[in-house]
Simulated assay, not measured.
Amino acid sequence: MKKKIVVAITGASGSIYAHLLLKKLDQLKDQLKEVAVVMSDNAKDVWRFELENDHFNNFDFKFYDKKDFMAPFASGSARFDTMVVVPCSMGTLGRIAGGISDDLIIRAADVILKERRKLILVARDTPLNLIHIRNMQTVTEAGGIICPAIPSYYSKPKTIEELAMTLVNRVIDLIGLENESYRWSEEEG
């Protein structure tokens, strides 16, 4: 069964993760029914600063304004399977944990949690204070998955993109999509 996914991009550092996730979802679109994207204003600014482009405009996904509460995924009846917030700022995490649906990103996360569907937050900040940790605990207890933006090194990545893809591939696994990527302890061919 093809999945319906919401990707939310916030203004935390780590635009490379959002960019690579959108590219990977585009490559895996045969497994997807729909991908909807919502970006905060800060996300667009950080993307332009970190990646020195505005290629978020180049993806063939439907983009929604952060104040568009008429977006289909603002309601559980639209039956989106998964939401990924990548990167997820600590402010966004706190508003999700507090149930403060002041924009489409938080409303969509609230809907995903209330419908008992999959919410994946790619938290991107360090160090963490106790408020961050408690917010992560609250979201986890509500059914969300905290996936810190921590890449792995098992595959011996050679570039920044390869390193970031180690995390993106993990997110793809959490979504439940079929994806060829490095697997720990598998024989190399």
Rank of each mutant, 00 (worst) to 15 (best):
A78P: 06
T82L: 13
M39P: 00
N135D: 07
K3G: 00
K23E: 15
L20V: 03
E186L: 10
M1W: 09
K67Y: 14
L20G: 02
D173Y: 09
F61A: 05
D68Y: 01
D65H: 04
G91M: 12
D41V: 07
N42C: 08
E186C: 10
V111K: 01
K156S: 12
L32G: 00
I146C: 04
N169I: 10
F49Y: 15
S77W: 05
L28M: 07
E178K: 14
I105K: 04
F69N: 01
C88Y: 08
A74P: 06
F73E: 12
L177S: 06
M83E: 11
N179F: 11
F73Q: 03
A123P: 05
I100S: 12
K118W: 02
S181I: 08
A12Q: 12
I5D: 11
I5R: 01
W184N: 14
K3V: 05
K67R: 15
M39K: 01
V6T: 02
P157Q: 00
R48Q: 14
K158H: 12
K24V: 06
L174F: 11
R107P: 09
D26L: 12
G14V: 06
T10N: 10
I5L: 07
M90W: 10
E186T: 07
A149M: 04
P87I: 10
G94Q: 06
I150H: 10
E161D: 13
A43Q: 01
R107A: 06
I146Y: 03
L174I: 09
F80Y: 14
E187W: 09
P148L: 00
L113I: 02
A149Y: 02
D45V: 14
L25G: 08
G99N: 11
I131G: 04
I9Q: 07
K23F: 08
K23H: 08
E162G: 09
G91D: 15
R170M: 07
D65K: 03
S185Y: 15
R117L: 00
I175H: 01
I146K: 02
G91F: 12
C147R: 11
K3L: 09
P127E: 03
M83Y: 09
E188D: 13
L25V: 06
D102F: 02
R124Q: 07
F59Q: 03
F49R: 14
M90C: 14
H132L: 04
L121M: 14
Y153H: 09
R79Q: 15
R117N: 00
K29A: 08
D65N: 09
E178Y: 11
K66A: 10
V46C: 00
G99L: 07
K3W: 04
R48W: 08
F56E: 05
I160Y: 13
N57M: 12
I9M: 10
V35E: 05
H55L: 14
T10C: 08
I5Q: 06
E178S: 13
D81S: 11
L51W: 03
Y154R: 08
A12I: 09
I133P: 03
K66D: 15
L28T: 02
E187R: 13
N58M: 09
G99R: 06
P87V: 10
S181P: 11
A78W: 06
M165E: 05
V168C: 01
L51Y: 05
N42R: 13
K44C: 05
M136Q: 12
K62D: 05
H55N: 15
F73S: 03
L93D: 11
G99P: 08
E141H: 12
I120N: 02
G11V: 02
H19T: 10
I5V: 11
S13H: 04
S185E: 15
V35I: 04
